[in-house]
Design a protein around this nucleic acid. Sequence first.
DNA 1: CGGCTTTGACCAGCGC
DNA 2: GCGCTGGTCAAAGCCG
Length: 354
Amino acid sequence: MANLRFSDENPTAASSFGGGSIFDMAAGACEVSGGDKWGSLGFMDLLGIHQDFSAPSLFDSFHHPPILSPPPPPPLPPLSSASELLPPEIDTKQLLQQNHLQTSLPSPASTVPESSEVLNNPATPNSSSISSSSNEAANDDQTKLAGDDEEQDQDKTKKLQLKPKKKNPKRQREPRFAFMTKSEVDHLDDGYRWRKYGQKAVKNSPYPRSYYRCTSAGCGVKKRVERSSDDSTIVVTTYEGQHTHPCPITPRGTIGIAHDPSSFGAPSFVVPQPQYLHPQQQQPYIYTSSPSLNITTTTTTTSTSTTSSSFINSSFPAFLQERRFMTIPSAASLLRDDGLLQDIVPSQMRKLEE
DNA sequence: CGGCTTTGACCAGCGC
DNA sequence: GCGCTGGTCAAAGCCG
């Protein structure tokens, strides 16, 4: 059986977080199973199977991301609200520091198996500015090129025209979210359609890092996928930005399958009880899926007073986002007790691994 | 033929 | 200022 692992830690800047894990696993199962009921089962499904499907739930948020992240993004709430969202035992300042370290240290995935990275969220998320800035830059370059000697290297000119990369002085990045997934598959399917636009070798790691972009028009969400150099079976997925469209897969009404884990037949998933670890541990939650998939996911939910809101608006799987909303008030108790996922994973499932 | 991946090159940010 | 690294672009090729 594969393990799904969730954690609430801060990923390093290098590993950042990925959102693919849980979802990817679920989505991957969908693909494997084809058009049957599992075909539409998402990771959220796995997490939310115990939920009341008649009421708004994790699925709702996942299937309707715009609800959580409507463009244009709403103004950031007061910082105080963010601190309220954090468990009392978690020092906000400490988190802030951690977050800062994560974003400033060149920590390779190998050293940071952590999954979720929440970067400082710009006050004005600029998912649209990415393309617009590029266009502006392109215009500038074209203007410059107008005066260039046409006999110059055409290739060079062509490249200049094609690569107007002028960016903002301080490039504002979308809030990012990362988590780790134990999977043999690099690019897990999270229900959205991604297009690979680059691949780079990762320093201190034999495994390359792949860059994906959401193929939906107007959606600037990006995803980075890389394997941990320490454990090649761990895939670190990092989401950046927010989806401006519903998940193309896993339509409503397909969820809520198999409250009984036993009903999960291959190649579908089995999401047994999460194994809770201390919040400081990197792998607080462990889920098990079908053996063939062998996927373990780790997520980190650490956020700072300045990143909480952005975090919620990020492209991070909506179910997790909403999960924060749902659990924030009781986060402390959850952490102290059975873990953050106790309200997501049916106790029935959790007992399976006991 | 359209969509996606691969791949090499370029650019910007950052540290020294 | 220079070099390294992360991130991005887009042509070329592959695939269904």
